[in-house]
């Protein structure tokens, strides 16, 4: 019971933070709020018994993502979002509300929150819970499934991260040489 209570409060905080992020225009404040958002969701993961996930979310979402975003706004030197002239909020709002309504309609068919007899709980999960400790000798089921039963998936994920690293290096890895020179030239021509 107390779980549900905490969940509701945290979810309310999450919603408030998200709305604040939408409404704010100062990018620095938005990034700080995003860090708060990550920590709140990490707290929610803990309440829902996903300690590994919460750990990762706190380290990655609140730590690395925030640092990278700060680095980006330091590089782009653009601390405020400008409201463009052709800013029309109504069409996006309608689309979002329609999608949201469809999703809420979809959740009507989802089994009750925390139901032990739901299809997700009865399909492969019992196998992992019962067999992982005797078969691998590792008490943490998440680690066992991650590295052993689904090792192939994880190999894919590692390769994705590796590729992203290479891509970032290709995009902004070297010292800037040509691009700035070209831009300066163009600005001179404009002036």
């Amino acid at each position: 019971m107390i779980d549900v209570f905490i969940n509701v409060i945290l979810l309310a905080f999450l919603a408030i933070t998200a709305v604040a992020i939408v409404r704010m225009t100062n990018l620095f404040a938005i990034i700080m709020l995003f860090g708060i958002f990550s920590f709140l969701s990490a707290a929610m993961f803990i309440v829902m018994d996903a300690v590994d996930v919460a750990f990762t979310e706190a380290a990655v979402g609140a730590g690395i993502s925030t640092a990278l975003m700060l680095a980006t706004i330091a590089l782009t030197k653009d601390h405020d979002e400008k409201q463009s002239v052709s800013y029309r909020p109504w069409l996006p709002l309608v689309v979002v509300i329609a999608t949201g309504a469809a999703l809420v309609y979809g959740t009507l068919d989802i089994p009750t929150f925390g139901d032990p007899d739901a299809p997700t709980q009865t399909h492969v999960a019992p196998y992992y819970i019962e067999r992982s400790a005797p078969e691998t000798g590792v008490p943490n089921i998440v680690t066992a499934v991650l590295a052993s039963y689904r090792g192939f998936d994880t190999l894919g994920e590692v390769v994705v991260i590796f590729t992203a690293g290479i891509a970032v290096l290709l995009l902004i890895g070297g010292r800037r040489r040509k691009s700035t020179a070209v831009r300066d030239e163009r600005e001179e021509n404009d002036a």
């Binding site: 929610m44 018994d49 925390g114 089921i141």
Partner: peptide, 14 residues
């Protein structure tokens, strides 16, 4: 994560 939650369940560490 909310789909994976079981009411009264513990974190999946044996």
């Amino acid at each position: 994560i909310s789909i994976g939650t079981v009411a009264g369940g513990a974190a999946p560490i044996i």
